[in-house]
Amino acid sequence: MIGRIVLAVVACSQFTNANAQDIDTKLLTQEASKNMAQEYVTCAAFYAVGARCFAGDKDPSDREHMQRAAVLAMRRAAEYADKVGINLKDTIESYRFEFNGMAEKINTDCQKLEILISEHGERCKLLMSHSTTNLN
């Protein structure tokens, strides 16, 4: 009888540990998805500010590339946000906040775009290079 109780206690503790690990994994996955959504939102805003700065260029290729990157980043942000129950309205609001903050940071002076490039350029380039959809 005592042997069965010990086996039951051991089995329950292993089951509890397995459940705790599953819960930890789910929480980490949710947190990672939230972080990825925010990273993509930030990059979408960065590329959109860049596209706005290139709006007056005679050669539209830089502006178009930045616009495509911004759209793709927002798609990815929405996908990650949706995985954790963040609605599209909140994702768009986060984008607007990021966009306005970046525009304000350079005082809408595109000569200061280098400030944003130094803060976000490499990280966004890396993030977008791991995206599954090509920018072209």
Score class of each variant (00 low, 15 high):
A32G: 12
R68W: 08
R96C: 11
V49K: 03
I115H: 00
P60S: 13
S94D: 13
R123E: 08
V71N: 02
A78M: 09
V49L: 06
E79S: 10
A73M: 11
E31T: 13
K83Q: 15
D22G: 08
N107W: 04
A78D: 07
K34R: 15
K58G: 14
K112G: 04
F99D: 04
T108H: 08
R76A: 04
I23D: 02
A78P: 01
M1V: 13
I115M: 00
L113F: 05
Y95H: 04
H130G: 12
R75Q: 07
L127K: 06
S129F: 07
D24Q: 08
V10R: 08
L7R: 12
E119A: 03
C53Y: 01
R63F: 01
E64S: 11
V84L: 04
V6S: 03
K112Q: 13
Q111E: 02
Y47V: 01
E31P: 06
I92G: 08
E98D: 02
L28Y: 11
R96N: 14
L27Q: 07
L127Y: 03
C43Y: 04
E64G: 07
D82Y: 00
A37G: 13
N100G: 10
V9D: 14
A37S: 15
Y47E: 00
A32R: 15
L113Q: 01
I117K: 02
